[in-house]
Design a protein around this nucleic acid. Structure first.
Length: 562
DNA sequence: GCCGTTTTCGGCCCGACTGTTTTCAGTCG
């Protein structure tokens, strides 16, 4: 039987939450299902391996949901879900994806007009039958049609590069020094839903400038403005400078982190909101210009944005046991770069100059092996010629090029170059570039074979995902991490904004198991060297310290490590 | 349905904005 992935289990729990919500169930019960879904999906360990008792120990999962998870693992669903599902038309749930439509609206449309799908809603709105319902009017009909149109052309979450493009449009119209980025952008997530900004400028000053870059103003109030830019939603909250810290804390989130912080504030006798901390007995409001002052006021260490996920960081901050995360400036080199010897556009000379310009000690030249047809890879002879050119280039460069290769992990788990060649290469990255749809067991064994190969130093982009285009391959990453810990193999955090692979949760699992992480940009073009920051921030989200990375080692230490 | 630094029962974050309303419900973040 195929093992159920955490994603599948999470989606099932999430679906239950949606069904209950549309039925008008107790909102806290609904929240419990959503919360458990989220917890399961960001757990590195597969829930299918945990028994009921172990599941119950996970915060957010109680005895009822623990039982249901076991049921999902064994049967793919659970009895109560099937009972509830039978009473609701399936396409109804999709209506929840429309902007401005929540469970109450879905329920009302269903009960009053027998709307069961988006197509039904579109028809009813066009024929002006919505306005017949009490509480709904002409504007609702318009907004439903607009939401449907928007949903059909939806482009989903942004890569970090796309988000940077939106930011690049908006930021130039704002006054320098008067604003800060917030939301998932600031937290460094690998994909971004919308762009959040906190501004000290009053809306009367900022809004006219914003309109010049907005395709559409979604709403404009005295305290916030929402608009669309490059098709993406941007939210701006306005704040007085004295309250800037509270507003930034609030808008940075995450939502679970905010809830945790506000609960803790209640425990300490305060109400926490975006304006400050209000003493619950006296009503006195303390204001904070910076986030640091808020953490200090509550008696905890400062939590950097990357850690704000309610992932144990609040407890760690209270106990003053937060990790010291790796920083950009500690990175001494890039561990995955392609040259004109395979599918890159840079010569070795150009790569060395780029490395010097960035102040790097070294760059790992990791061109493809010849098995990958599309990438014009190197065979044994080509690789030996490249070794010579690397040597020559290094004579006149302060940034050392390290001879490496990115060798294919073939469908059967063997490598694309013979062992005698790999033995002569300083650093070997082994990656999967083909046969992504193998079954989980086959796929996992394939990667494990590479981990166990004595010549392999790093597993490149381990899950193979391409954000928005290709799901992660069916690989048991926790098992790969366990084995990598035993063999001393490093795992890559590929810094391409289209990959960010491994992602934060596996980085955290890997560092817990003392597996080293190698950040590589996979750069094929000179402008891609800057992507290293996406890799660093992803590692920070995975609680990685400088000691967890290969990139923080000196050239000498790195060579000793391999 | 979860959880307990105040609780094994009774809470569960907090506020902005829109549309449809004469005071609020619903949605969103």
């Amino acid at each position: 039987m195929a093992e159920r992935s955490n994603r599948q289990v999470g989606e099932t729990l999430y679906f239950m939450g949606q069904l209950l919500e549309v039925l008008g169930e107790n909102p806290f019960k609904v929240r419990a299902y959503y919360k458990s879904a989220e917890v399961v999906e960001r757990l590195a360990t597969p829930v299918s391996r945990l028994d009921e008792e172990q599941l119950r120990e996970i915060p957010g999962i109680g005895s009822a949901i623990a039982k249901k998870i076991r049921e999902i693992v064994e049967t793919g669903t659970f009895h109560e879900l099937e009972t509830v599902r039978a009473g609701i038309p399936e396409p109804l749930i999709e209506l929840l994806s429309l902007e401005g439509i929540g469970p109450k609206t879905v329920n009302k449309l269903w009960k009053k007009l027998n709307v069961q799908s988006i197509a039904d809603l579109e028809r009813e709105a066009k024929q002006h039958r919505i306005r017949a319902i009490k509480g709904f009017g002409e504007k609702k009909e318009e907004s439903f049609l607009k939401a449907i149109a928007l949903y059909r052309e939806r482009s989903g979450r942004m890569t970090r590069a796309e988000a940077d493009a939106v930011v690049g449009m908006v930021v130039p119209v704002l006054e320098p020094g008067t604003f800060a980025m917030a939301g998932s952008y600031r937290r460094g997530k690998s994909t971004i839903g919308d762009i959040d900004i906190v501004s000290k400028e009053p809306p009367s000053v900022a809004n006219p400038k914003i309109r010049t870059v907005a395709e559409e103003m979604i709403d404009e109030g005295a305290k916030k403005t929402s608009f669309r830019c490059l098709g993406k939603r941007v939210d701006v909250r306005f704040s007085r400078p004295e309250q800037f810290g509270s507003m930034l804390l609030y808008l940075t989130g995450s939502k679970p982190f905010n809830i945790r912080m506000r609960e803790y504030a209640i425990f300490k006798g305060f109400k926490l909101n975006e304006y400050g901390l209000e003493d619950r007995s006296s009503g006195h409001l303390s204001e904070f210009a910076t986030e640091e002052e808020i953490f200090s006021f509550l008696g905890m260490d400062y939590i950097v944005p990357e850690l704000r996920e309610d992932w144990g960081e609040v407890e760690a901050a209270l106990a003053r046991r937060l990790p010291v995360l790796v920083e950009d400036r500690e990175v001494r080199g890039d561990l995955h770069v392609h040259s004109t010897w395979s599918d890159g556009v840079m010569s070795l000379e150009e790569i060395a100059r780029a490395g010097e310009a960035r102040g790097y000690e070294y760059i790992l030249i990791s061109d493809h092996s010849a098995t990958l047809g599309i990438a014009h890879g190197l065979d044994e002879e080509g690789l030996r010629k490249q070794m010579h050119e690397v040597e020559v280039t290094n004579r006149s460069s302060s940034c050392r090029l390290i001879q490496g290769t990115e060798v294919d992990i073939m469908a059967d788990g063997t490598l694309g170059l013979p062992a005698r060649v790999l033995a002569d290469v300083d650093v070997v990255i082994a990656s999967i570039h083909s046969a992504f749809s193998q079954e989980r067991d086959v796929m996992t064994r394939r990667v494990l074979a590479a981990v166990e190969n004595e010549h392999v130093d790093i597993i490149g982009h381990p899950t193979g995902r391409i954000l928005g285009r290709r799901q992660p391959a069916e690989i048991d990453i926790p098992r790969v991490i366990e084995r990598a810990a035993e063999t001393g193999t490093a795992l890559e955090c590929n810094a391409s904004p289209f990959r960010l692979d491994l992602d934060d949760l596996y980085i955290r699992e890997a560092t817990r198991k003392k597996v080293k992480i190698a950040i590589g940009t996979d750069a094929h073009h000179p402008e891609e060297f800057g992507n290293i920051r996406y890799g660093v921030i992803t590692c920070r989200r995975g609680w990685a310290t400088a000691a967890d990375l290969l990139n923080t080692m000196s050239h000498k230490e790195l060579m000793e490590w391999v």
